[in-house]
Design a protein around this nucleic acid. Sequence first.
DNA 1: AAGCTGTTGAGAACGACGTCTCATTCTCAG
DNA 2: CTGAGAATGAGACGTCGTTCTCAACAGCTT
Lengths: 150, 150
Amino acid sequence: MPGGARGTAQPKQARAGRGRLPPDMRRTSQRRAILQALDEAPGPLTPHQVLERAGAIQDGLGLATVYRNLAALEEAGEIVAVHLPNETRRYEPAGRGHHHHFRCDRCEGVFELATTCPVAVLEGVTLPGGFEVRGHALTLYGLCPDCRSG
Amino acid sequence: MPGGARGTAQPKQARAGRGRLPPDMRRTSQRRAILQALDEAPGPLTPHQVLERAGAIQDGLGLATVYRNLAALEEAGEIVAVHLPNETRRYEPAGRGHHHHFRCDRCEGVFELATTCPVAVLEGVTLPGGFEVRGHALTLYGLCPDCRSG
DNA sequence: AAGCTGTTGAGAACGACGTCTCATTCTCAG
DNA sequence: CTGAGAATGAGACGTCGTTCTCAACAGCTT
């Protein structure tokens, strides 16, 4: 899915504060709460974590709404799905560039890492055996700062 | 459940051909078929794949039996579970040393790689931010030899 | 050979996760 | 302000991987 027909000169009075949501996606308080929750998180969140955090912002938020919005926002390119081994799907805001995640063995929290990717050298390479590498998924495990000092 | 009272001098005549299964684990044809299927596979298998392959060796094999044996064999240390992002649990024989897996985007098959681990340098390191690395999971994606030529 | 007991197959049952329905509410262009 | 239709909440429902149940079977020891 390429960039899309951006800049086709259709002014349409872009309202202030609006992200870059698709034409008929309304700015509901629930949707904003969900995006805010994802923005403020230290790492990708599961749907239930989104419900918890966004529910604290927007009271009465329902799980179905969370699922619907996560799907819609992913479709719209606002957020991306993150899959970790043996975990349910998580989501984080899109546009944060290539990075990997760290999962704490103790608190089970997942964090976004700023560390340079040690696997980049393999991109595009064809490994002995004939495996053509086009992508990779790396997750680091261990103790997060909090659990290390706690 | 710790190791138990091992080595209490109870020779018990270890029969030939027997792997190193625990005392009261019987060598049923089903169990052997499952181990054989895992041994001959190019990579870790899901329970259903085990059923397919082992079922071709031992006719009438049931899914419950596969699950029971995978759990028992893992417990016994004969096989290990392999978790890939967004996939159901897979199993492969134990004792193959540190390695990673390749998943084909086309045929969705998973293969064991012999390539040297590019992430080993991070083991034991504490990353900026205070994340203490104790382990990692790496999966490469792309095209397998078959799908590349096909 | 015989018996003890671990093991099996088939299908029901389960739990986690996610989707659907529908009456109601809310956003936003006109 | 108002109407059209997108969005919501609550819960029923569906899916899928896995476990349980139980009568029959089959390793293994004696």
